[in-house]
Design a protein around this nucleic acid. Structure first.
Lengths: 105, 105
DNA sequence: TTGACAGGCAACCATATGGTTGCATAATTC
DNA sequence: GAATTATGCAACCATATGGTTGCCTGTCAA
């Protein structure tokens, strides 16, 4: 779980995920196009995404195809975001009450 | 948005959010209890959470009360995770097909 | 009014991170 | 089989990050 959050923390990696989301199964070279950094840098980012299981690879000859794996993102929602969403109104009410208490006192 | 992801990337900060989620409106000193690090470290983490607007503060005398703000988390879901969730089945189908194509070829 | 308490600021440190370059290896293609 | 293409590995570098310690300020209570 930590590796997923870590992987998502970098904007370049989120950009890579977005590109794969737009067109799944791209090679490293394809992903490098228009990425304003060296192939090695992109490769490292992909390694981090793989470590977080956000991207899954498939070798075809000398090409490495990259696919988005949506499962960890779903997990983050289920185990983490959903929990906060559920109590969203309560949290906002807490904030509001704190502000009001302060105004009164 | 980037600051929100950055804030969520650290396990200590997620722990702080969880503690506030369990009991909202805690002071710095309260949050430090059982946190295996100095007050300054916790204070820095809270500053990062505030920068990402995940935590909102309210001064009461010499005490600083901390409240979870659920809005950025909701935003992440709306603008980011939801997008991937929507195409989850398609992405999984992509993966499956890639594996099968490889098996055939 | 003096001491204790809650918190902030600044300097410092070790390690993690994001990036680079150079070279090596495996698969194509001519 | 030789050149090209796709990728990996390793060393290196600057900066970001997470942590510490020491000291300062403001508030509350005896």
């Amino acid at each position: 779980m930590d590796q997923v959050f870590k992987a998502l923390a970098d904007p370049s990696r989120r950009a890579i995920l977005d590109r794969l989301h737009a067109s799944n199964g791209q090679t490293l070279t394809q992903l490098c196009e228009g990425m304003a950094m060296s192939r090695q840098a992109v490769s490292k980012h992909l390694a981090v995404l793989e470590a977080g299981n956000l991207v899954v690879c498939q070798w075809r000859g000398r090409e490495k195809l990259h696919y988005v794996n949506p499962v960890p993102i779903q997990d983050i929602y289920d185990r983490w975001i959903g929990k906060y969403e559920r109590d969203r109104l309560r949290a906002l009410a807490d904030l509001k009450r704190a502000l009001e208490d302060n105004r009164d006192g």
